[in-house]
Design a protein around this nucleic acid. Structure first.
Lengths: 168, 168
DNA sequence: TTGAACTTTCAGAAATTATTGAAAGACATA
DNA sequence: TATGTCTTTCAATAATTTCTGAAAGTTCAA
C-alpha cells in the first residue's frame, strides 16, 4: 500500500467516523490530515489536500481551533498562517471530552433539573416521568464526575487502571 | 410547570441532544417518549405525540428495536403492536455502548490496522503517518477493552468505583 | 378466501446541513 | 496611505439527510 492512498483512506474514514458522531465531515477530515502531517500546513495546503474551498477550509480550521484540537503557528519568512494538531492522543481525548461535556452534556443536565422540579401532579404518568427524569439525573451526575476526573487526569493510565479494577 | 409541557421539553431536548451525537432526531424523541411513558404505546400514539407520519414512526421504532432500546409487546384484546422502552438506565447505556462499538468503533479499528500495515516507504512523512496510526491503534485497543468490560458489567457501580479509584 | 386492521416499504418531496466564492476586512511593507 | 497578501464572512447554492404518504405486504377472524 502506498503512503498517499493509505493517507487518503485514513482521512476519508476518519471523516465518515466523525459524521456518525455528529461532527462535520470536513472538520474531521482536516483534523485527520493534520494529525498525520509531519509539518504544520497552510490553509492553502489543506484546501488542496481535501479539495475544498477557501471558505470551507477557514471555517473548519477555526472550528478545530475552537475545539482546542489544533493551533496556529508561523513559519519564519512566511506571511501566512500554518496549522498543526495536538498529537498526544490522550490529550486529544481529554479535550474532546471536555468540549462535548461543556457544549452538550451540561445543557442536557440543566434541562433534566429544570423539568424534574416543580411538577405537582401525582398521576401515575407524572410519577413515571419524575422517576425517569430523576434516574437520568442521577446517572448523568455520576457520568459527569467521572468525565471531569478524566479531563483532569494527566495520564492515559486511567484506561489500564480501570481495566485492572474491573477484572472480576 | 405542567406535566405536558415538561414532557414536551424533555422530548424536544433529548431529540436535539441525540442529533448532536449523530442520532436521528426523531428516533431520539421517540426513545424519550417511551422512556417516560408509564404504559407501552402504539405506533398511532407515537405518531400523534410527535406529530410524525406513519412511515416515519415505523422506521424509527424499528431502528430503536435494532438498537436494542425498545421492544414490541401485545396487549390482550388488542390487535396492534405496542412498544415499550428499557428503563434501567445502566442497561440502556451498556446497550448504546455495545451498538456504537460494533457499528462504528470496530470498522474504524479495522481501518487503522489496514492502513498501518504494509507501508514500506521510510520518508519522514511516512514515519509520521505510521506513528500516528499506531498511536491511534494502541489507544483504540485500550478503549475497546474498557468498553467491552463496561458492556459486560452488571452494575452501574463502575462509575462509583472509577471515581473512588481516581481520587488521587 | 375474503376483507378489515394493521405494518412495512420506498420514491419523491421537504427540511436540514454544509459548501462555495466573491467581497470585505486585516495586516504588513514600502 | 497605497498596495499586495492573506484571512474572514456570509448570502446563495448544493449536498445530504430525513420525512411523507400511498401502495404493497401481512395477519387473522369469520
Amino acid at each position: 500500500m502506498k503512503l498517499a492512498e493509505a493517507k487518503t483512506q485514513f482521512i476519508q474514514e476518519w471523516g465518515t467516523f466523525g459524521s456518525k458522531w455528529g461532527v462535520n465531515r470536513t472538520m474531521a477530515q482536516a483534523h485527520a490530515l493534520l494529525l498525520v502531517s509531519a509539518e504544520p500546513m497552510s490553509a492553502e495546503n489543506v484546501m488542496e489536500e481535501l479539495n475544498i474551498s477557501r471558505g470551507n477550509a477557514n471555517m473548519n480550521l477555526r472550528a478545530l481551533i475552537d475545539w482546542g484540537l489544533i493551533r496556529k503557528t508561523h513559519i519564519s519568512g512566511e506571511r501566512r498562517e500554518f496549522f498543526y494538531a495536538e498529537k498526544d492522543i490522550w490529550k486529544v481525548t481529554r479535550q474532546v471530552i471536555k468540549e462535548r461535556k461543556r457544549r452538550e452534556l451540561e445543557p442536557l443536565r440543566n434541562m433534566l433539573t429544570e423539568v424534574g422540579e416543580g411538577i405537582q401532579e401525582e398521576s401515575p404518568q407524572a410519577e413515571e416521568f419524575k422517576k425517569m427524569v430523576n434516574e437520568l439525573r442521577k446517572f448523568s451526575s455520576s457520568a459527569d464526575v467521572m468525565l471531569e476526573k478524566m479531563v483532569k487526569s494527566e495520564q492515559q493510565w486511567i484506561f489500564e487502571s480501570l481495566m485492572k479494577f474491573m477484572v472480576k
